[in-house]
Nucleic acid binder design. Structure first.
Lengths: 260, 260
DNA sequence: CAGTGGTCTAGACCACTGC
DNA sequence: CAGTGGTCTAGACCACTGA
């Protein structure tokens, strides 16, 4: 047997998807239908479908069917938040999405005080367990969940500023911090890829098989770390772009692209 | 039934792993053993193991057993290749890994001429289907596969340079291009996360359930795009770092970290 | 209600590993 | 050779969806 049966079934479906016979959003043949078509048992069909789901190609929906996932991506210019500029990340998101002709939303805004985990403490240069202010929100593009964002501030930085209030700051948090003596001069991003937790998968609307892209952004004043922002993106619908040095010879690619 | 059986089995194993009872590299109980222990059928046990494998927590090995994966990560300072500097990416890799006290290798070096795919053509600002020079290699850290790299050059840039020879260039490709009138002044990185193809999974030694981190780096001279480098990393053992602006207030984190 | 995917069982044979 | 995971079958009942 050159190829396992379930892989043959998976390959056949994969081919129908990549050829365009099955468009994004289209429903796959049902499991009984695939049994008949390939003359295999249901478990074998399910193995094939599980393989495709793990690649993020299809998405099963309880009681309705299995569907081809839409993998339209959105590109973020992550190096746009200039080191010393007052341009805010929040405005940058809204502006970038609007320019791309799509509709941004920021929802579920919250402020709370927590103790710093070891990961947060190390990046904010504070002691583990010390209190930090957390401001979180969730972002949607065209009504579809897109990212989860949490920003951590050392307590003494946030103290006495509007960062302590559980509401949005119209002119942006970077400006608010600058007004209180914490001017941002640069930041460091750490980007990694992993599989989502159950909670993340539920909010981002991704099943198993779709990784998340996680970015830790630590912002600095000339003296110290002043903010840590953790962004979790649906991995298969987000690209992060960084421009280093002079890239004027490069024309800006379209912010919305179709992956192969 | 509050929780499906296979998830209960998965949770029990997950708990043993996170508590440290099962260390990285340790072998899980065999499938028949898990059947007895939880009083479930083999297929249920396998569903549980598949769930853990999809999270990248464990890795089955044909004929030997199922093992807890080692998830030590390596961090790359992706903004280290200064726009106008002659510092080479190749040297940067070797230097960074060596500094971290680990052992870098670059193997399977190849040069070939291909026609540009649409993705390559768009970034290199050449016509789709036009010939491009491809130089590829694979990288290992401490003997473990870590990344796949392919660099694409427009034919007229590579023509008449050592880029056309299927061997390593000791002083680096950036210097070689600068000597022939293509001085690099900046680059643009696009970072995304996706599930690996079969080929990638096989080389990177990751099973299903471990995403890859893919980086497109387009390098520019003052006039044009001169190189496109595509890096594919094992997602759960790689972090990319970018430093924008002044981050002297941030102390350099250790390049090797243990994820939670 | 019929049709879909979700869960589960019992049993079979195969391919690979290491002793 | 025994023990491991890889593949496959046949059949059962459940939970959810939408007409």
């Amino acid at each position: 047997m050159p190829q396992p049966l379930y892989r043959q079934v998976a390959d056949a479906l994969r081919q129908e998807i990549s050829s365009g016979e099955l468009q994004p959003g289209a429903q796959l043949p049902s499991e009984p239908e695939l049994e008949k078509r390939h003359g295999v048992s249901r478990n074998t069909v399910r193995l094939a479908l599980a393989a495709l789901a793990n690649e993020g190609l299809v998405e099963p929906r309880q009681g309705r069917g299995t569907f081809v996932r839409d993998r339209t991506t959105f590109m973020v210019l992550a190096s746009a938040e200039e080191g010393g500029s007052a341009r805010d990340d929040r405005d940058a998101f809204v502006a970038a999405v609007t320019v791309a002709g799509r509709n941004p939303e920021q929802v579920d805004f919250r402020m709370e005080v927590r103790t710093a985990s070891s990961e947060v403490a190390a990046r904010l240069q504070v002691d583990e367990g010390s209190p930090v202010v957390v401001r979180s929100m969730r972002r949607l593009i065209d009504g579809r969940p897109w990212s989860i964002q949490e920003s951590f501030y050392p307590m003494d930085v946030a103290q006495g500023t509007r960062l302590m209030s559980p509401t949005d700051i119209p002119y942006g948090t970077i400006t608010e911090m600058a007004r209180h003596g914490h001017a941002q001069v640069g930041y460091r991003d750490e980007v990694l890829s992993r599989m989502p937790t159950h909670t993340e998968a539920a909010f981002l609307g991704v099943g198993t098989g779709v990784p998340v892209l996680e970015m830790f952004r630590t912002a600095y004043s000339a003296q110290r770390a002043i903010r840590l922002t953790i962004n979790v993106y649906a991995g298969d619908s987000t690209q992060l772009a960084y421009e280093i040095g002079d890239v004027t010879a490069g024309q800006e690619p379209s912010p919305t692209t179709e992956p192969s």
